Simulated scan of single mutants.
Amino acid sequence: MERLVLWDIDHTLISTGGVGRELSALAFRQATGVEMREQAAVEGITEPVIFRETAKLHGLATDRGDFERFAAALTQAHLTHSAQLRERGHALPGAAAALEALAAKSGIRQSVVSGNIGAVARIKLEVFGLDRRIDWEAGGYGDDDDVRSALVTLALTRAAGRSEVLRPENAVVIGDTPADVEAARANSVPAIAVASGRSSQAQLRAAGADVVLPDLADTGRLLDALRQTSGRTNSAVPASSERRSAT
């Protein structure tokens, strides 16, 4: 049975070196006519939510049309400034080797679940030469839905075909935030977390990750983690989630 690996992008595979926020500010100004003075929380959040909450911080009420204008401007900004992204950003250690190692394994299909707009997700990985092993049609992206767990559901459906959904034990989510882990758990999909972003290994374990790695630098450890999670489902609610739901 084919296994679907769903990668997060930012702080899992790449770092934009601050360029991402600058391009978001540029697109925000173009879409709203207002200078972006501050930005809402972005860790593990989808692009439509980031845009909407950032607009609120500036006293703006927005609708889907405003977001679509922002998405178009953000895509164009990434195309226009791709050289700057390449110069200041970088692929994270082990990312390229991990993608290649998984591609060399029979029965593994790689795609993306990301809060990024689909076109921006593609540009980010293309800039750093990480796009060649990705099945883009099987992914879930920020312009598909506001809710990250719904993006995992969508990816499972797209990977399997219109009339069925890929079984959770035949997929795995790899990401760097508790939101990645929780989106996987909401779909009973196992999660491998990498502490290459702002979340610590302890925070990722508390979120309920099946396996936590410090980063992707050791390809062997990643392959071991994939073996450990093969055929497993993950739907139990961790204690940290129970505490959050009570607040």
Rank of each mutant, 00 (worst) to 15 (best):
A96G: 13
K105W: 10
R86E: 11
R132M: 02
V120D: 06
N116G: 07
E126N: 13
H90C: 11
I108M: 14
S114K: 07
D66P: 02
A98S: 15
R122D: 04
H81L: 08
A121M: 06
D66H: 09
R109P: 00
A72G: 00
V120Y: 02
L85M: 12
H90S: 10
L130H: 10
G65T: 14
T80L: 00
G115P: 05
A121F: 01
S111H: 07
I117D: 01
A121Y: 07
L130G: 10
F70L: 03
S106T: 12
V113E: 09
R133M: 10
G115R: 02
Q110C: 11
D131V: 08
E68G: 00
F128R: 12
G65Y: 04
K124F: 11
A77K: 00
V120E: 11
A98Q: 08
A101N: 05
A97V: 06
F128D: 06
V112F: 07
V112C: 12
L130A: 10
N116Y: 03
R86H: 14
L85S: 01
S106Y: 06
Q76S: 02
L79A: 10
A77H: 06
Q110T: 11
F70C: 01
A119C: 07
S82H: 15
I108L: 14
E87G: 03
L99E: 09
Q110L: 09
H81Y: 05
P93F: 07
Q76N: 00
D66Y: 01
W136Y: 10
A97W: 05
L99T: 09
P93T: 09
R88V: 01
A103W: 13
L85R: 14
A101W: 05
A72E: 06
R133G: 00
S106Q: 14
I123L: 14
R133C: 12
L99M: 09
G129F: 08
W136N: 04
S106V: 05
H78C: 02
N116P: 07
G89A: 09
A83G: 11
D63S: 14
A121W: 01
A101T: 09
A96V: 00
L130C: 08
L85V: 12
I123K: 13
A71R: 10
I123E: 13
S106E: 15
A104N: 06
Q84C: 00
A77S: 07
S82T: 07
V112I: 15
K105T: 12
I123V: 15
A104C: 08
G118C: 04
G107I: 05
I117M: 06
A119P: 03
E87S: 14
G94R: 04
A95E: 14
V112M: 12
E68R: 10
A72D: 01
L130W: 03
L125P: 11
F128H: 12
R69M: 03
H90F: 05
A101G: 08
D63H: 11
W136L: 08
E126I: 04
I134S: 09
G65Q: 14
A95I: 07
S114H: 11
A77Q: 03
Q84F: 01
A73G: 01
A103E: 14
A95Y: 11
L130M: 03
R133P: 00
D63G: 15
R109G: 01
I123W: 10
I134F: 08
S114W: 05
V127D: 10
S111I: 02
G94D: 04
F67W: 07
D63N: 15
G65S: 13
G107D: 04
A71T: 06
V127Y: 04
A121K: 10
R64E: 15
N116M: 01
H90W: 08
